[in-house]
Design a protein around this nucleic acid. Sequence first.
DNA 1: GACATACAGTTAGATAAACAACTAACTAAA
DNA 2: TTTAGTTAGTTGTTTATCTAACTGTATGTC
Lengths: 146, 146
Amino acid sequence: MSNNQFKKGELYSFITGKASTAIARNLQKKFNSAGLKITIEQWSVLYQLWKEDGKSQQELCSATFRDKPSITRLVDNLEKQQLVRRVPSESDRRINLIFLTKQALKLQEETMQLAEATLNEALEGVPPDRIDICKEVLQIVYDNLR
Amino acid sequence: MSNNQFKKGELYSFITGKASTAIARNLQKKFNSAGLKITIEQWSVLYQLWKEDGKSQQELCSATFRDKPSITRLVDNLEKQQLVRRVPSESDRRINLIFLTKQALKLQEETMQLAEATLNEALEGVPPDRIDICKEVLQIVYDNLR
DNA sequence: GACATACAGTTAGATAAACAACTAACTAAA
DNA sequence: TTTAGTTAGTTGTTTATCTAACTGTATGTC
């Protein structure tokens, strides 16, 4: 016997990630309403750079769980919007280091507040210890398949 | 105080749905390896039709949590691959009822087995009661934001 | 130094998603 | 029965993802 407790009807919903889709849409709407012209995907890249500026594209791939072409194009679009700039590494000319512009730094506080608001709405009525368990399960799933 | 127990570093990962992305990629690879030429998104539509054939596009929207243009194009592609066909409703000529072809019926067993395999891999080492809690939390999140 | 190999990033082509604007068909109310 | 509003589905545009194939740079071995 496996430990798969999902009936088939529930399986689908887990696979397709309806919950995370709902969260992403909610946050995107908050961005739009606030007049912030960035996508959730772009925000997820900026988020990594707010944590540590000057990451390489490869590091952004790992951090955001995206492949190289996706990051290339996300950085392309972020660059067009003047939110980041590519700086060739001095020590290894294959590498681009990605740096935030002043404009992008300004976005941090507002977007993080909106993200927190979305999460609060999402988790309304969920006891903290259950959130922790859910988080742990998702982490294991991620580790199992990575 | 809110019940948001996420530190900022964890927040991002929850929002972006890395776990469900990992699951989807794993299953897509299984499809590819098995020579099944369908996408996860197409499979999610077929899945709904295996449960009940002849749904309208609108019903597929609700069931798969996608908007109308997405379903229009998914059905377009499924139709190109001869996996479904659009049948105009007799009673309301605005409505297309979507029916599976014989070819699509043949896909059910194999793809469901692969999906179950992916879920078993994903949930390896997770106690059943924790899976249930995770599922419940995700359901609440979905309901909160829908 | 010359070569094979690995690595960082880009490009091309297909599918998918979000949003807005649109057409066609149904419904309800004057 | 005309009109207004609603619903089902489509189309156009932009952004994002995936798998291939590609360029350029670095590394390690002979």
